[in-house]
Design a protein around this nucleic acid. Structure first.
Length: 281
DNA sequence: GACATTTGACCGTA
DNA sequence: TACGGTCAAATGTC
């Protein structure tokens, strides 16, 4: 485990802490993988659940650190840039001026094929567009916490043209909001079995906020973040075939998790995110 | 009345 | 210049 002093001095203290958390999470994941490889026993010094708990905590801390830094930046920017920006002054001056925006090319994006548009977050639809050569229109959604918490997450939902009931959902940007209900999955918190996690159903959900047709509801597990959904599925995949069936085929992951059927396509990180897989095997 | 959705207009990018 | 993403007025719903 690296100490703070092991990181380049160019990193800020927050970045160093993030790195520490990520390394910690990676190490736990490695141990967890070994545990799964010797799946019959629970003989390690720590149980799989404890490791998963650690991983979750590490990633959660990292996300918190990053989002707190980002949120500060966002709120600072918002205070001055959004309503005071030349762009919007211009808009105020000219009511006819619309579409004053910058495309966010550097945001993280990932695509998910799902039988449902629900993902545990509350989204508000802000647009719909007929796309060329597509049978179905594409819906544009933003996080309902965009204005109160500066959350930059958006998603695009489009019915697939292959006649199936599947939706192609593209997530753009990560949630910087911190829903009150966000917490570690019940299974982790209560140290229950993985099986209990499987038993979580949409029927015992509580809504963060009522949104019309596209409203999404978090599960009681509190697993409200799409990133978390993907993460837990990935973790559970190998040895919990009944719970989650993952097929890692190069760059594509096919999963079935809870009520969602997902095909997760490659995450495109425009920011340079390096992950040395060779150390993982 | 507050909030969400619809829809046409506007604008950036390829 | 066409396409796609976003904005915001109009409209709908509770």
């Amino acid at each position: 485990m690296g100490s703070v002093s092991a990181w380049p001095e160019t990193l800020s203290s927050n970045e160093k802490r993030v790195m520490e958390e990520l390394v910690n999470g990676k190490n736990c994941a490695t141990q967890l993988q070994i545990l799964f490889q010797n799946s019959s026993e629970r003989s390690g010094r720590v149980s799989a659940q404890e490791l998963v708990q650690k991983i979750f905590t590490s990633f959660d801390h990292s996300i918190s650190l990053l989002t707190s830094a980002e949120s500060a930046e966002v709120s600072q920017n918002q205070a001055t840039s959004y309503y005071d920006s030349p762009c919007c002054k211009k808009r105020a001056a000219s009511k006819e001026k619309r579409g004053c925006y910058k495309r966010r090319k550097s945001e993280q994006t990932w695509t998910v094929a799902s039988a449902t548009v629900e993902d545990g977050h509350a989204w508000r639809k802000y647009g719909q567009k007929q796309i060329l050569n597509s049978e179905h229109p594409r819906g544009y959604f933003r996080c309902t916490r965009k204005y109160d918490q500066g959350c930059k997450a958006t998603k695009q939902v489009q019915r697939m043209d292959d006649g199936s009931q599947m939706y192609q959902i593209t997530y753009i940007g990560t949630h910087t909001c911190r829903p009150d209900s966000f917490k570690a999955p019940q299974i982790i918190k209560d140290s229950e079995s993985w099986q209990s996690y499987k038993m979580v159903t949409p029927s015992n959900t509580t809504a963060i906020k009522q949104e019309a047709k596209e409203t999404t509801t978090p599960t009681t597990s509190g697993l409200t973040d799409m990133d978390s959904v993907i993460m837990w599925k990935d973790i559970l995949g190998a040895d919990y075939g009944d719970v989650v069936s993952n097929v890692y085929s190069g760059t594509e992951i096919t999963s079935q998790c809870l009520e969602m059927d997902l095909v997760i396509k490659p995450v495109e990180f425009e920011d340079e995110f390096q992950f040395d897989e060779s150390e993982f095997v």
